[in-house]
Design a protein around this nucleic acid. Structure first.
Length: 762
DNA sequence: TTCTCAAGAGCTCAATCTTT
DNA sequence: AAAGATTGAGCTCTTGAGAA
C-alpha cells in the first residue's frame, strides 16, 4: 500500500484544553502573543466543524508545492504564503526576533526548574505526556502550578497546532518555559518557516507544522469560498481563521481544478500577481538543503533525470499554453481517443507542478540545481497518498462518488447552511460574483479580457447610488459635472493640509469606506467653522501623525536606521502633534485624534474639562470577543501624549522664564531655541497650574455602525461633529442617517470656498 | 582531527475511527 | 462486519555540537 501522508495539525486538542483552563490561567495567557488565537479556541469562535474536511483541499494544494521556489504553483503562477498572511490568519505577531529551531541554539539538553519538576527522567515530550501533566496541575492553586499550566498549554498548542511533530522540540520547551518573553519573537515567521521546512522535505509521509494554515490561506487569498456570515470584518490582531469554513472550501474545491485557482487569486487581488515568488529569508536554508543532497547522493546520478525533467517541462509547458489557447478538447482529440478525453484531461492536473511552472527570471540560471527538488513531482504526484485521500475529483471531474456522503452531512452543519450569496458583497470589496469555471477551456482572449476589464470596471452609474439620490438637483448637477470632467486629477476640494480627490467622492457616494484624507479634510472644515462661530474650541490632530507613531512591536531594523527613523519620527510628531497641541491646548476643550489602523477607524478624544481621554469605536460589538486592537493603538497614543505632557510640564518654568522653547528643526542634531508665541505661553502656564494626569477609557455607549457597513470613517467624523459642537451623541443611528451625513459632507465640500467650481475648469 | 551522545528526522505499527 | 483511513506514539537511524 502506498505510504500514507500524515497530517498532525488539529484544532481539537486545543479546543478541549481551553475549556479546562481556569480564570487564573487565562489571565496569564492573555499576556502571551498567542492569546488572540487561544481566545478564538476558548470562546468557540473556532469550532471543530469549521475545521474538518480540510484534508482533500490541503493535499491538493500541497501537490502544487515546489520546494525550489518554496511556493505553490497554480497554473502559471507561483504564490507563497508570507509572514504577513500567517500573522493575519493566526493572529500572531509578525515582527520581532527570529525563533531559532534546531541544534544550533541549545547545544545540550535544556534544563530548568520547570523541566526538572515535570520532565525529569523523560527523554521525549509527547502530547500524551503534556496533557496528562496539565490535567494533574489544573486544580492546584500555587502560583508555580498556575504558571506551569500556562507553559503546558502553550506547549500543547505548539505540538498539536502550530509546530506539530510527534515530539516537541526542546527548543520550543524553552520558549514556553520563559513564556513572559514570548512576545519578543516573530511567531508568524516561525510558523511559516517550520511549515515550509516540512513541505520542502524529501519524504512526505507526514506534514509537520501548521498544515491547516494552507487551506485557510487559500480561503483568505482567493474567492473560492465566502466568509461565514457575520464574520466578514476582522480587524487588528484577531486571527482571521475564524472567518472560514473548511468543509465549505472542500465542497467548492471539488468543483474546480487546481489550474483554475490561479484565476481566483486574481479576482480578489485585482492586480496581476507576478510569477516571481516572494522569497522569505529561506535562501540560507535552501542552500543547506542543496548541499546536503549533493553530498549524499552525488550529482551525476541525476543528470539524466534532470535532462528529462527539463525536456518534459518544455513539452508540458507548451502543452499547457496550447491548451489554454486552443480548446483543450480539440487538442486532446487529435492525440487521444475520444473516450479517454475526460480522464486524460484531468490526469494532467497532478502534474501541474511540472507542467505549469514558468521559471521566474531569476531562476533561469539555477536549472542545474533543480534536480533533487524536482524528483518529487517526477515520482508521479509527489505526495503519495492512499486512495481515500486522493480526492476523486482530482482524477476525474465527473460527479465524485464521495460527494453524496459529504452532501449528506453538510446541511447538518449549522455553519454551512448559511446562504453564501447573501454574504457576498457585505465585505464591501467583494462586489464580484464568485466565478466557478468547471470547464477548463478558456481561451487566451477570454483570459486577457478578464484581466483587463476587472480593475477598470466602472462604478455603477451615479444615479443609482443612494447617497447621490439624496442630493438636491443643484448638487447632483455639480457632482455629475465634476465626474464627467476630463482631467481626473482635478481635486474636489483642497485645503491647507488635506484634499479630496475624485476617488474620495466616489467612495462617499458609493457608500464604501472613505480614506483618511477625507477625515483630515473634514477636520479642517470643522476647524474653520469654529473660528467663525467660536462655540466650543477644539484641536484636530491630523491622521498623518500615525506615520510617525511607531507601534511597539514593529521594530526590526539596523541600529543606524533606527536612529535615523527616530529623528524622522520626532520631527514629524513635533510638526503634526506637539506643536499644534502646544499652540492650542489652553483654549481647546476637546482634542481629537482619529485613530487610523489597518482595517478600521476609531476616535480618541481628550476632553480637557473632564480631564479624561475617551476612545470611541463605531464597531464595539466585534471587539467584545477579544481585546480591542484599536483601543490598544489608542492607548499607545495616549501614553505618548501623556509622556509629552509630563516632559513639557517639567520644562515649562524654564521655557516661560526664557520665553523660548527648544526645538528640533531638521535631521541634524542641534536643537534651536525658538521664541514662544502667546498661545504657547498660555498652554505652558495652564500646564503648570493643572494636574495633567488624564486617564483613558473606552467608551461603551456611542452609537454603532451596522455590522456590514463600511461607515467607520463616517462615524468618526460624526462623533467629531457632535462632540465639537457640544452636542450629545445619539443612542442609535441608522444607515440612512449615515447616508445623510455623506450627502451633507459632499454639500459642505461643494459649498466651501475651496470646493471645486464648475467654471474654474471650463 | 576524531569520538561521543543527545536531539532531530524518518519510519513503523498498533489502536481507533469511518466508510462501505 | 470487514476494509480502509486516521491517529498517536514508539523505535531507529542520522546529524552535529562539544569533548578529548
Amino acid at each position: 500500500m502506498a505510504p500514507y501522508c500524515q497530517i498532525r495539525c488539529s484544532v481539537l486538542p486545543m479546543l478541549e484544553t481551553m475549556q479546562l483552563l481556569k480564570e487564573s490561567h487565562l489571565e496569564l495567557l492573555q499576556k502571551t502573543p498567542f492569546w488572540p488565537l487561544l481566545e478564538a479556541f476558548h470562546n468557540g469562535t473556532v469550532s471543530e466543524l469549521q475545521c474538518k474536511d480540510c484534508r482533500t483541499p490541503l493535499l491538493k494544494i500541497i501537490k502544487t508545492f515546489n520546494p525550489e521556489t518554496a511556493s505553490f504553483h497554480f497554473g502559471t503562477r507561483a504564490i507563497s504564503i508570507n509572514t504577513e498572511d500567517i500573522s493575519q490568519i493566526l493572529g500572531l505577531p509578525q515582527h520581532g526576533d527570529t525563533v531559532q529551531f534546531g541544534h544550533l541554539v541549545y547545544r545540550r539538553s535544556y534544563k530548568s526548574d520547570f523541566t526538572e519538576r515535570h520532565f525529569k527522567g523523560t527523554d521525549r515530550v509527547s502530547h500524551k505526556l503534556l496533557h496528562g501533566l496539565l490535567l494533574k496541575l489544573l486544580n492546584r492553586k500555587e502560583q508555580t502550578d498556575i504558571e506551569d499550566v500556562v507553559r503546558l498549554t502553550l506547549m500543547e498548542l505548539f505540538i498539536t497546532f502550530l509546530f506539530t511533530r510527534p515530539h516537541l522540540q526542546l527548543v520550543l520547551v524553552k520558549y514556553c518555559d520563559e513564556f513572559d518573553k514570548l512576545s519578543r519573537y516573530s511567531w508568524a515567521a516561525a510558523v511559516g518557516e517550520f511549515l515550509n521546512r516540512s513541505l520542502k522535505a524529501k519524504s512526505k509521509v507526514e506534514i509537520k507544522g501548521c498544515a491547516l494554515l494552507i487551506p485557510l490561506w487559500l480561503c483568505e487569498k482567493t474567492n473560492i469560498t465566502q466568509p461565514i456570515s457575520g464574520r466578514e470584518i476582522i480587524e487588528g490582531n484577531t486571527p482571521s481563521l475564524i472567518r472560514w469554513s473548511l468543509p465549505e472550501l472542500n465542497m467548492k474545491m471539488q468543483e474546480i481544478t487546481i489550474c483554475e485557482i490561479e484565476r481566483l487569486f486574481e479576482v480578489q487581488n485585482g492586480i496581476e500577481l507576478e510569477i516571481k515568488p516572494e522569497h522569505e529569508n529561506h535562501e540560507g536554508e535552501e542552500e543547506e538543503l542543496k548541499k546536503k543532497d549533493t553530498k549524499q547522493k552525488g550529482r551525476e546520478l541525476y543528470q539524466p533525470l534532470q535532462k528529462e525533467i527539463v525536456e518534459r517541462r518544455k513539452v508540458q509547458k507548451n502543452d499547457y499554453e496550447l491548451n489554454v489557447k486552443n480548446n483543450f478538447k480539440d487538442k486532446l482529440k487529435a492525440e487521444v481517443d475520444g473516450d479517454m478525453e475526460l480522464i486524460e484531461k484531468d490526469q494532467l492536473d497532478p502534474q501541474i507542478p511540472c507542467t505549469a511552472i514558468q521559471l521566474s527570471p531569476g531562476d533561469d540560471n539555477k536549472v542545474p540545481q533543480v534536480e533533487h527538488q524536482m524528483r518529487l513531482p517526477m515520482e508521479g504526484t509527489g505526495v503519495k497518498v492512499g486512495k481515500q485521500q486522493l480526492d476523486p475529483d482530482f482524477v476525474c471531474n465527473v460527479v465524485p462518488k464521495r460527494r453524496k456522503a459529504k452532501e449528506q452531512h453538510a446541511p447538518s452543519d449549522p455553519i454551512l447552511t448559511v446562504p453564501t450569496r447573501a454574504i457576498q458583497d457585505s465585505a464591501g470589496k467583494r462586489d464580484e460574483q464568485i466565478i466557478i469555471i468547471v470547464d477548463d477551456s478558456v481561451s487566451e482572449e477570454e483570459k486577457s479580457t478578464r484581466k483587463v476589464k476587472r480593475p477598470r470596471k466602472e462604478w455603477s452609474p451615479l444615479e443609482r447610488c443612494e447617497v447621490f439620490k439624496l442630493l438636491d438637483d443643484e448638487y447632483q448637477q455639480k457632482v455629475k459635472a465634476f465626474w464627467s470632467m476630463t482631467n481626473p486629477k482635478e481635486l474636489f476640494w483642497s485645503g491647507k493640509n488635506a484634499s479630496v480627490a475624485r476617488e474620495d467622492v466616489k467612495k462617499l457616494i458609493q457608500n464604501t469606506a472613505v480614506a483618511s484624507n477625507v477625515i483630515d479634510a473634514f477636520m479642517e472644515l470643522l476647524e474653520q467653522k469654529q473660528h467663525q462661530s467660536s462655540v466650543k474650541q477644539s484641536t484636530y490632530i491630523s491622521t498623518l501623525c500615525w506615520n510617525y507613531v511607531r507601534m511597539k512591536d514593529a521594530r526590526k531594523k539596523g541600529k543606524k536606521d533606527q536612529v535615523q527613523d527616530e529623528v524622522h519620527d520626532e520631527v514629524g510628531l513635533n510638526q503634526l502633534v506637539f506643536d499644534p497641541l502646544l499652540g492650542s491646548m489652553a483654549q481647546s476643550d476637546y482634542i481629537f485624534f482619529p485613530v487610523i489602523s489597518k482595517f478600521h477607524y476609531t476616535l480618541l478624544v481628550l476632553n480637557k474639562n473632564e480631564k479624561k481621554w475617551t476612545h470611541y469605536n463605531p464597531l464595539r460589538k466585534r471587539s467584545e470577543l477579544h481585546i480591542d486592537p484599536c483601543y490598544e493603538v489608542a492607548k499607545q497614543m495616549h501614553q505618548l501624549i501623556q509622556e509629552w505632557f509630563h516632559i513639557t510640564q517639567k520644562e515649562a518654568p524654564r521655557a516661560l522664564l526664557n520665553g523660548t522653547k527648544r526645538k528640533k528643526l531638521g535631521k541634524r542634531e542641534d536643537r534651536m531655541e525658538v521664541p514662544l508665541s502667546e498661545d504657547e505661553k498660555r498652554t505652558l502656564t495652564w500646564m503648570m497650574d493643572n494636574n495633567i494626569d488624564f486617564k483613558i477609557e473606552n467608551d461603551r455607549i456611542s452609537p454603532q455602525q451596522d455590522f456590514k457597513s463600511l461607515d467607520c470613517g463616517i462615524f468618526v467624523m460624526y462623533y467629531m461633529n457632535q462632540l465639537s459642537q457640544g452636542l450629545q451623541l445619539e443612542k442609535e443611528i441608522t444607515e440612512c442617517r449615515m447616508r445623510e451625513f455623506r450627502k451633507n459632507l459632499i454639500k459642505l465640500l461643494l459649498d466651501h470656498e475651496n470646493g471645486w467650481k464648475q467654471t474654474s475648469t471650463t
